[in-house]
Structures are given as structure tokens and as C-alpha cells.
Write a protein that binds this DNA or RNA. Structure first.
Lengths: 335, 335
DNA sequence: GTGAAAGCGCTAACAC
DNA sequence: GTGTTAGCGCTTTCAC
């Protein structure tokens, strides 16, 4: 049967309090007593029961992470670096995948806030802040990751993509492009909105063709890439900006299949993506916008623990910046 | 403050037992009483506390998954489909990342089996079964995923790659290759061992050059790909088999950078990888070995719940098979 | 058809 | 320097 703290106490000839304090280092215990306790623990093969402990203390030592798409390497990498940081601090990570589906997010929000985790990291697929907010119990620690709401009630960790997208358009314009297309994600997402508005502004500033049909909205998952590209090609665009790394890979391949060489029919393509060691190998012929993906995960981990430990600490918006890599740069061979 | 089951009971004018049974449907409650309970719950905004419940029942409704590399799409996809199935059954998924590091796996094994989860899915990076086994409390539900041990004590879900690798070698041989190289993963992994032995057997059977230097072991992460490729190229091989999808992408790019066209200096390349919708676009010029990644995740989910619910059910080894896609096949356009 | 009450294993006052 | 003990919120046996 299960061996409990009382079994240990009995065998060691001490009280359960002493055993507890010995294990947790929460008060002084004499060397000799410690010894007896540890010996008893070893002999019985005792392991403190995590759920009894959580129940008692109210701390679960667990953070939830609601993501739109685990299999997307962008989020996979964020999860990885968040988990890496959290495990360092003795926390576990519970993952929930929404597949960009609002109901799934609702369900998970409800389940995870019901005493399962100490805090929640959310890359939300919702656009209705009021609704999102209504699903979070008052005072529950939440940090928004990658995606924001207009209303800045919750702390967030995100990436600014306005400037790089603006710059992409300018560079395409300078190369002679007149009709620059944009392949964006789900229209409701803050990241999409920000990129689209940067695009619109730059297109106007550069005097390029300003045509809503040049903006193609995908569903933020890779499968929508070909359709988006087809739409843009049918619009005779001569430059393309792809707002997502996963889609970008597909786009490149699809272009190649269609025998449309880059810098020929199409002047230039810019990507927004995560930084992979092998990245340069693939895409050296195009501009890259590299997001600081590991840092997002790390920052997310730091912020959520800050809020878990001090729920009333000030609400920060942490905005990280992407790196813009123009394609003329000297090639830095991976490895 | 926190609202508990007693608050609800008091407001509804019933006992906590009735509230509990109403919520859980564990015994008959009259319609009228139910109503009162639900009204009280709504009024107070009551949510049952998950950790109290776990503590009481001993069921956490949580499965742990120890993976070597979350950011690898192969595992990302397995996690995704496992999570998908588990959430369907009311279970949550705790992720732990080992980065192919044995100590990290040990730590996580210890932490997760200490009352945190009901069962454990593990894609182990260990090769010492005895050691692994010693870290699992007797009777604790465990299912091995993707990677096996020689000793078949634990149930497992894995993929057979012997036949496809054997076939790859044969096909390269038929194309005229004499020196076929293999880019494998960590030598200690069962998947690597199985693939290497298929390779060795086929090389012998086909009368190809049999040279240990033609086998290049990576670390099962993408960053080792270029070094592996360089090693093989220095061996003047005329065909290459890449045992991992992540590495394969890097290899393709690296070959292109080196201006080595496929089917020119190198006769053919085969990949072992997951099935992505866009896959055909990329790699149509090579044979593909497509692993049933979603099914691995699903099967893993099914198996672990079976064991959680019936710890003494028979130990199954579930072996799934990959799909071999020769490159001459008529192209099935993605989508 | 419903209630009373005993714990699950642990931590943390409070006591000495 | 260590022991006693209440109680975290819930489920479930036993009782009526």
C-alpha cells in the first residue's frame, strides 16, 4: 500500500511535523533526527504525495499553457523554452491545444482555472476581450503570449512586427514592385491586425497599388498556404510578404513546383518566422523577419511566475522585437 | 474568498453529499433538489476544486508525457494527437522535455510519478532498461512511445522501420548506387538500432559497399545534420538515407547550398518522416518513408488510458507501419 | 431521496 | 528542537 508521512514518522520515532519539516527544510531539525528521518524514508521508499501537498498548500506548482497549435514549430519552440524555465523553478507545464477554435479555448480556460494550475499562459484565438475576460476568475494569474487584446488588462509577452512589415514593403517597392501581396493569418488575431496595418500604411506611403484583394487571410495553419498563394498570384502581384514561418515553407515549395522562380516573376518575398539554425540554408534568397521565439517562451515563463508569486504586481506588456535580415547580407553559413 | 461545496449546500438547503452527487451524477437526486443545487451553484459561481477532488479520489485526470524534443514537429504532432484524444476523455497532459538528456529524464520520471499524474507516456532517451525500470514505482501505468527497450515489460506504441529502410537500400542499389550512406539518430535509441540493422542487412544482401564510415550518427536533433552530411560526402557516397524528418529538411537545404543536385552526384535520398500536407511539394524528387504520426499519438493515448483504468490489463506492443512512397509515383498534389 | 460524518496525506499554527 | 492537532474541499459509507 501507499506509504505516508505517518509511516515514516512512526518508523523514525518522530512526529509527522518533524518529517515534514525535514523534507521541506521549513524549520530547524537536528542532524541526528534528520538522519533517522532520511533513513526511514529510504527504508520505506517514501515519496511525498504531490496532490495531498497541493491540496494542503493551495499551490499546484503547475502552469497551464493554452496554445492554438502545438505541432507548429513556432509554438513548439515557445513551449519548449517556457517549460525549460519553469522546470528550473520547480513548476510543471500543462498543455492544451485549441486548433484555433474558440470553443476549445473556452473549455480549457474553464477547466484549467478550476484549481488545476497556479497560472495560465494563453496564446488566445479569441478577439472578444470581454468574453475572454469573463472566463478568467478574478485575480487568477494570466499572461497573454504572442497575441494581445486591445484592452490591456492582462500582462503580455509579444513581438512587434509593425516595423519589419513596413520595411519589407519599402524594400519591395525599392526593387520595383508595384503590386505587393500579403499572406496573413486569421483576421481576428492581434498579430494579423498589426501586420496588416503596417502593410497598409507602407503601401500607401510608397505609392504602391492599394487593393484589398492583395491581402490574403489564411487560418494561421500551414494547410491554408497554397490557397492564399493562388489568390495572390491570380492578382498579378509582383512581390509577396508571408506573415508566418510555417506557411512560408509551404509557399516556397509551392512556388518552386509552379516553376515560379523567386526574383523573376516575383521580385522578393519576406518571411516572418522563428529562428532555426538551418534557416539561412533555405531562405537566403529572401528577406527574413526572425522572431525571438525562445525569448518569448522565457519571458512568458518569467512573467507568469512573477504574477503567481505576486498577483498584484504591476501589469507589464513585454514587447520583444524581431530581427530583420535583408537578403543582401553576407551569408552566415549555419554551423 | 473561495466558494466551497459547503457554501453551496448551505444556500441550497441540502447536504454536501447531495451537492456532490448532483454534480457528479453518482446517485439519484430529485428534480426539485437538483434545481436548487444548480441555482445555488450559479448564484455563488461555484467551481469544484480540482485538487481537492484529486486528493480525495486519488485520480488526477492527468497524464504525463516525457518527450525528447517538443520543438521537433514529429513529437509536436504526436503530442497534439495524444492531447486531442485525452482531452476527449477528460484528461489533461503534462509535458516534460528532456532534450535527449538522461538526467533530465530521470528527474522528470521521479517528479511525475510522485502523485502528479495517473499515467506516463514516455519517449525515452535511455538505453538502460534496468535503470529506467528502477525509476518507475511498481504498478505505475507507463506506455513507451516511439522508442522501445529490449525487455518488453512495458506496453509500447512504435513504428516498424525495418522494412522501409531495407527497401530504400534496395532501391538505391537498383539505381546503381554502390556506396549508400545512412544518417541515423542517437546510437542508443531503439529506433536507430532498428534502422541501422535494416540498413546493414540490406547493404550486405545487395552486395553494396559495407563500410562503417558510411553510417553517420547524429544526436537526433536537427543541428547535427550538416556535420553528418559532410561526413558522408567525404566518404564519396552516391546515395543517402536520412532517418529523420527534421534532419532531412536541413539536408536538402544543405545539399542545395553545396550545389549538389539530387540525382546527380547523389542518386537518391530517402527520408523517414511525418506526414505533412505540404510534404509532397518539397520532397517529390526522393523516396519518402512516412510515419503514421497522428496514429502514434492516438494509440499512445488509448493505451495509457487503458492501463490507467485497468493496470493489470495485458501488456501490448502496438507496432504501426510507415508508408513507403517511391518517387516515381504519380504526384498527388498536396491538398 | 437525503444527511452526517469520516477521512484522503499533508502543512503549519500553537504549544512546550 | 520537537510534538499535537486542526483542517484544506471533497467523496463516499453508512444510516434512515
Amino acid at each position: 500500500m501507499k506509504v505516508t508521512i505517518s509511516d515514516v514518522a512512526r518508523l523514525a520515532g518522530v512526529s509527522t511535523a518533524t518529517v515534514s519539516h525535514t523534507i521541506n527544510g521549513t524549520r530547524y531539525v537536528s542532524g541526528e533526527t534528520k538522519d533517522r528521518v532520511y533513513r526511514a524514508i529510504a527504508e520505506l521508499g517514501y515519496t511525498p504525495d504531490a496532490s495531498a501537498r497541493s491540496f494542503r498548500t493551495g499551490k499546484k506548482k503547475t502552469i497551464g499553457f493554452i496554445v492554438p497549435d502545438i505541432s507548429n514549430k513556432f509554438f513548439g519552440t515557445i513551449i519548449e523554452s517556457a517549460e525549460n524555465y519553469l522546470s528550473t523553478k520547480g513548476y510543471h507545464l500543462i498543455i492544451a491545444n485549441t486548433k484555433e477554435n474558440v470553443e476549445r479555448e473556452e473549455t480549457n480556460l474553464r477547466l484549467l482555472t478550476a484549481g488545476l494550475v497556479d497560472g495560465l499562459l494563453v496564446a488566445s484565438t479569441m478577439d472578444d476581450f470581454r468574453h475572454f475576460d469573463s472566463l478568467i476568475p478574478a485575480g487568477f494569474p494570466v499572461v497573454l503570449v504572442d497575441r494581445n487584446f486591445e484592452t490591456k488588462k492582462f500582462p503580455s509577452v509579444s513581438v512587434s512586427n509593425f516595423q519589419p512589415i513596413y520595411r519589407s514593403v519599402c524594400r519591395l517597392s525599392a526593387k520595383g514592385c508595384k503590386r505587393v501581396g500579403l499572406i496573413a493569418g486569421l483576421p481576428r488575431l492581434s498579430t494579423t491586425k498589426e501586420r496588416v496595418s503596417a502593410y497598409r500604411e507602407a503601401v500607401a506611403d510608397c505609392g504602391l497599388d492599394c487593393d484589398e484583394a492583395l491581402i490574403s487571410y489564411g487560418d494561421s495553419m500551414e494547410s491554408s498556404a497554397p490557397a492564399c498563394l493562388d489568390q495572390l498570384l491570380s492578382q498579378n502581384c509582383d512581390g509577396i510578404i508571408v506573415c508566418q514561418g510555417l506557411m512560408a515553407s509551404v509557399i516556397i515549395a509551392y512556388l518552386r513546383q509552379k516553376d515560379l522562380m523567386l526574383s523573376q516573376n516575383l521580385m522578393l518575398v519576406s518571411f516572418v518566422d522563428y529562428n532555426v539554425q538551418s534557416y539561412n540554408l533555405y531562405y537566403q534568397q529572401v528577406d527574413q523577419i526572425v522572431q525571438p521565439v525562445e525569448e518569448i517562451g522565457l519571458a512568458a515563463g518569467e512573467e507568469i511566475l512573477r504574477r503567481v508569486e505576486a498577483p498584484d504586481s504591476p501589469v507589464f506588456e513585454r514587447v520583444l522585437t524581431s530581427t530583420y535580415k535583408p537578403y543582401e547580407w553576407p551569408k552566415a553559413a549555419g554551423n
